[in-house]
């Protein structure tokens, strides 16, 4: 039935690429058989779903495979042997290090990976009958979490694969909470060649894709990018590890008093949970201003301020940092070399 429809759609839309998602028990024969059937539909590729966290994993499919790199490699190899179609391996985020399954897919000969699948989750507990929601006959189990909340996790995992010496260059299809053109562009900037959308379409229908296409092409026009490859991966070199961040980079939050609506959210956030670096009054009047002597540039106020562009981070390049009282050093220095690090001092001794 599915195969018949796939075939029909492909025949009606021959100029579109069609990738078929597959979930099959971990045995060679069933994979061999289904790959043959998919080839008959004239689809353009297959995606091995090693990510599904519910229903299938309990039957030895989906994330049950995706959580064991050896299985990933084995199944990917079978598939590459038994089909001429490109093979994409879809990865589960329910593991500790995404680079291992990605590398296993690569070793098995996969042409690409796609990620992330959904995250094990319980979204809510019904407080009347004390069971997870949705509730089935009084019980509930975990489901797969997706949508905007998982996007930051997906971006991070994509970046790890894009940066790792073993997996670098492996084509990636980005998935996870993509709902607008900007989300798509961010995944592409982290080297994804394609992106996939599900939750947003579930929430709003397929029409949302129209906004993504027009938004992306407007932004590309403004930037002068002709193809996706013109900006693909440009953010990857700028993802680094904490110890290589420039410790001599000094910034202070700045509040634009003309834009400020005096809600005091920045003050509450900074006062209660950060560095007490914002004052709430000036000459007895309600007025919010950053105290440079205290501001460590954590960016929290920027995130809580409800007014776009009202709080910005301004770099100090000369003079002294009022917080530390030390001269601002324009040279780059990271944790491995910085005097603040007792280990680096020791090494220098």
């Amino acid at each position: 039935m599915n195969l018949r429809e796939i075939k029909k759609v492909k025949r009606e839309w021959p100029d579109r690429a069609m990738v078929v998602s597959l979930m099959v028990p971990c045995e060679e024969e069933p994979w061999k058989k289904i790959l043959k059937e998919v080839e008959d539909t004239e689809a353009d590729g297959v995606e091995l779903n090693f990510g599904c966290p519910h229903g299938m994993s309990e039957r030895g499919m989906g994330s049950a495979v995706g959580q064991v790199p050896e299985y990933i490699e084995m199944v990917a190899r079978w598939c590459k042997q038994h089909t001429r179609m490109p093979v994409i391996v879809k990865l589960t985020p329910n593991i500790t290090d995404i680079r291992r399954p990605a590398n296993a897919a690569k070793q098995g000969g996969a042409d690409a990976v796609s990620l992330i699948n959904t995250i094990n989750s319980i979204t809510a507990i019904d407080l009347d009958n004390f069971a997870p929601q949705p509730t089935i006959d009084g019980k509930g189990s975990h489901g797969g979490y997706c949508g905007p909340a998982v996007r930051p996790i997906a971006l991070s995992m994509v970046s790890e694969i894009a940066r790792d010496k073993d997996t670098r260059g492996l084509p990636i299809s980005g998935i996870g909470g993509i709902a607008t053109w900007r989300d798509a562009a961010e995944f592409i900037a982290l080297s994804c060649g394609t992106v996939q959308v599900c939750t947003a379409a579930m929430a709003y229908g397929f029409r949302i894709v129209q906004e993504m296409a027009s938004g992306l092409s407007n932004w590309m026009n403004e930037k002068g990018y002709r193809t996706i490859d013109d900006f693909r991966g440009l953010a990857v070199p700028n993802v680094t590890d904490w110890q290589y961040l420039n410790l001599n980079y000094v910034t202070k939050a700045r509040i634009d008093q003309d834009l400020c609506i005096k809600c005091g959210r920045c003050y509450a956030a900074c006062e209660d949970t950060s560095h007490q670096a914002i004052s709430a009054t000036k000459n007895g009047r309600r007025h919010f201003e950053v105290i440079d002597e205290e501001c460590v540039a954590c960016n929290l106020c920027v995130n809580v301020c409800p007014v776009d562009g009202c709080i910005t981070m301004e770099r100090l390049t000369a003079g002294t940092d009022p917080r530390t009282g030390k001269d601002i050093n324009p040279a780059y220095a990271n944790w491995t070399t910085h005097p603040n690090n007792p280990m680096s001092l020791k090494a220098a001794e």
Binding site: K262, C263, G264, R265, Y267, A268, E271, A280, R286, P306
Partner: peptide, 8 residues
Amino acid sequence: CYFCYDAP
């Protein structure tokens, strides 16, 4: 509502 600090 923005849950302002010391709300006006």
